[in-house]
Design a protein around this nucleic acid. Structure first.
Lengths: 265, 265
DNA sequence: CGCGTTCTTGAACTTTCTCAACGCCAGTGG
DNA sequence: CCACTGGCGTTGAGAAAGTTCAAGAACGCG
């Protein structure tokens, strides 16, 4: 259907044309036709405002028309995990219980269509249309589970940066388009949120960004605005590609034994 | 609707009645009515057989009628992550691309209803019925992301054991039913698979199971058969409960700053 | 019984976390 | 205008958790 990656299009502009900082229309067909057939209601959220809290009554289901939403969970001792980051077209607020199992917070200015849970249960057609988006999210979540379970800290940060650059890093990545393969990334997240997303501490995220800066791979313009100077090079650090040039070759079968948990040095 | 946990009911028997090692009907309504309206075909898999491989042509979507399935992904250097473990009622094989983005393997003897992808696309009603299961899986995946991102190795192992005991550890856990609060767990997974599921190494899993054994919390009968001697005590080690007695109290709001990444000693 | 596979255990080493100090920046109020 | 303050972010030193490597034990199967 369409690309799995870059489903939360942070405001990003190609390096060569630094102009359009305003929100762009999401790439791909993901954000298509968010029709609201009577039951749906348009709701808007400022950047970094709470949409609902973990444990609150699960009254509504939301579909994002524009913007970015972050879902997170807390452990009772205060450890937080950002569980999913969503963009246009994505659906959240489904809960098998009567309460939300995670909190939702907008990252950028966000518009959603909200559906009352009760109404939804009486409109199977609508329910289905919303559900049909979920397997995209499931797929992205699988990718993220792999990041959390098996990638080193640097690979996580590199992967994170690549996810902020639409159109690059996926299977159909066109490779560098200009001699200067750079991209401007607006993060819209604090270091703490990035850390909670990547399963790291804030210090580690900070240190690794500094290391990337020292190596000349990125430059940090404004804390939440990073220029990735060589997209391809950062992409090679994600752990998702063969480091010796070849891209993923087809695998002969499962390799059940001896898996190094982290990349070898 | 129903419980999130124990959605992959490994063969488990209460400690007091050690008899029924044979597969039990799944608890809850998850495994309801797996009707196959013409398009669906019944397929069976031996324990530990491959259902499809990551990168293979995504020809079918499956719904589990009975048994357990493990989804996994490989990084190009051979690191593996078990991404999801599924039980009766769960759906897998959806892919936004033309190829599968993960591999599927049966853990126990498994029966599935398989639907040709092409047929599915012409039967929106069926598609919807399958999709409607996905938000349950999404929810379980959020839980697992939290485990991978924020839990210590011991908390992961404890959580894993609790997930193998149906009816316990969830929000509606009845607590100990007998004076002797034990449970028999059939793992159906090798140590390597458990490690790949929990984002650890095989050595760490082995070490921590030994530590639990030394502390008298579990006993290991047959490598893949473990008796959890005190379910409640193991549950307190999962990191999902307040360790000082009280269960989760309602939280006042988001706590965006200072999150210890691991539990304090 | 012997062999291959899987699991366990130990010791050394890495990575990442923890704790603490410091820097930067924006907003505030004298 | 400038010092003060609070919130983030960065950096360093030391500690801890988990990994790696290697050897030995246990299991299962012919």
């Amino acid at each position: 259907m369409q690309d799995l990656e870059h489903r939360w299009p942070f405001r990003v502009a190609p390096r060569s044309s630094p102009a359009p900082v305003a929100d762009r229309a999401p790439p791909g067909a993901v954000g298509e036709a968010v029709v609201s057939p009577g039951v749906g209601r348009e709701v808007h959220f400022e950047p970094h405002s709470s949409i609902f809290l973990e444990g609150g009554a699960a009254a509504h289901v939301y579909q994002i028309a524009r913007g970015c939403v972050m879902l997170s969970k807390l452990l009772p001792d205060g450890r937080r995990q950002v569980v999913e980051i969503l963009g246009a077209g994505d659906v959240f607020g489904f809960s098998p219980e009567s309460t939300y199992h995670c909190s939702a917070e907008s990252l950028t200015a966000t518009s959603c269509t909200s559906f009352a849970r009760a109404a939804l249960e009486h409109t199977p057609a609508l329910m289905c249309r919303l559900s049909s988006h979920l397997h995209l999210q499931l797929c992205a979540l699988h990718e993220h589970v792999t990041l959390l379970g098996r990638k080193s800290a640097m690979e996580r940060v590199a992967t994170f940066l690549m996810r902020c650059i639409p159109g690059r890093g996926g299977q159909d990545c066109p490779g560098p388009q200009h001699v200067d393969d750079g991209a401007l990334v607006r993060l819209a997240m604090t270091r703490q949120e990035i850390a909670d997303y990547l399963g790291l501490t804030i210090e580690t995220v900070s240190r690794l960004l500094s290391k990337l800066k020292r190596r000349g791979l990125v430059s940090i313009n404004k804390l939440d605005e990073i220029t990735v100077r060589d997209v391809c090079l950062v992409c090679l650090m994600t752990g998702s590609h063969m480091t010796d040039g070849r891209l993923c070759e087809s695998r002969g079968g499962l390799q059940p034994t001896r898996h190094p948990a982290r990349a070898r040095p």
